[in-house]
């Protein structure tokens, strides 16, 4: 009886907290429908007949930041980088775990070491390097994401590869598999759960990343975070309405993705945290 009463109390508390958690997004949402001069002066007031702006902010924002091309670049860069990162780091991890010598373990520890290096350490030199090699485009930046994301991905995959019994590989070898067919037919399917973890963690990072795309391709190709920051503009020229609308449009794809793949996202994040 006492426990039931307590649970009811906790239920109400959680409801209140859930509302508080959602409120910031709701506030941005209803402000995105107000005229731009009614936002900063009274952000907590709902739109009224006088302040309602319809979808004007959305139209202005989409035009100002080139929303759809930004969405396209973000999508292309994230999907390509995540796909290649998952594939190539699984291949690398398998090789490094199964071929044991001085060089492979040196390479493995260099990958692990790169995980603790903050981006600011290589920020300048990496963007110079990209400059030198002509990587300042949506395809070239994928190479940088592969390189900078390699550490964590190889580390996570290596942990999982070690748990694959070597007997499976020996059996496949007797059946006549060469390393490539063995990897795609036997190893990679076994690594599927960890591939989801690696994909989720990298997708969250690359989709939301600001500094790398800003420094390397920001002037010509704006990804979503770069485009949103660009709206900030010079002082005084900032269009609050367009900003609110673009915040809503940047959150929307994330919420959609979350609604579809919630199970995998949460599982991936937990597995990644425990390993990292």
């Amino acid at each position: 009886m006492k426990r039931r009463a307590a649970n009811l109390l906790f239920f109400i508390l959680m409801c209140v907290l859930a509302v508080i958690f959602v409120l910031p997004i709701l506030i941005v949402l209803f402000n995105s429908f107000k005229g731009q001069f009614f936002i900063a002066s009274a952000p907590f007031r709902l739109p009224t007949v006088d302040t309602f702006a319809g979808i004007r902010n959305y139209v202005a924002g989409i035009e100002k930041i080139g929303f759809f091309s930004a969405l396209g670049y973000s999508f292309f860069i994230t999907v390509t980088s995540v796909f290649l990162l998952v594939l190539l780091s699984a291949m690398t991890a398998w090789f490094l775990v199964r071929v044991k010598n001085r060089y492979t373990s040196a390479l493995y520890y260099t990958f692990v070491f790169s995980m603790i290096v903050p981006f600011q350490m290589v920020m300048y030199t990496m963007s110079r390097m990209a400059n030198l090699l002509g990587l300042e485009n949506p395809v070239g930046i994928v190479v940088l994401y592969l390189g900078f994301g390699a550490g964590l991905s190889v580390f996570l995959f290596s942990g999982f590869v070690r748990s694959i019994p070597i007997a499976i590989e020996e059996a496949a070898q007797i059946d006549g598999c060469n390393p490539l067919t063995m990897f795609f037919r036997v190893i990679f399917p076994l690594l599927r759960p960890s591939a989801i973890t690696v994909a989720v963690l990298n997708a969250m990072w690359i989709w939301n990343d600001y500094l790398l795309p800003y420094l390397v391709i920001g002037t010509r190709y704006k990804t979503l975070p770069v485009a949103v920051q660009y709206l900030q503009g010079g002082y005084g020229s900032r269009d609050m309405g367009a900003l609110m609308a673009m915040l809503v449009l940047s959150i929307l794809p994330i919420i959609l993705f979350y609604a579809l793949a919630q199970k995998y996202i949460i599982r991936g994040v937990v597995a990644g945290a425990v390993k990292g």
Binding site: L88, T92, S114, V122, V143, L144, G147, A150
Partner: peptide, 17 residues
């Protein structure tokens, strides 16, 4: 298996570091 990722790693991390 290793070379493609290692090259990207060299370009984006080892040399800049």
């Amino acid at each position: 298996f290793v070379l493609p990722l290692s090259l990207a790693f060299l370009i984006a991390f080892v040399i800049p570091f």
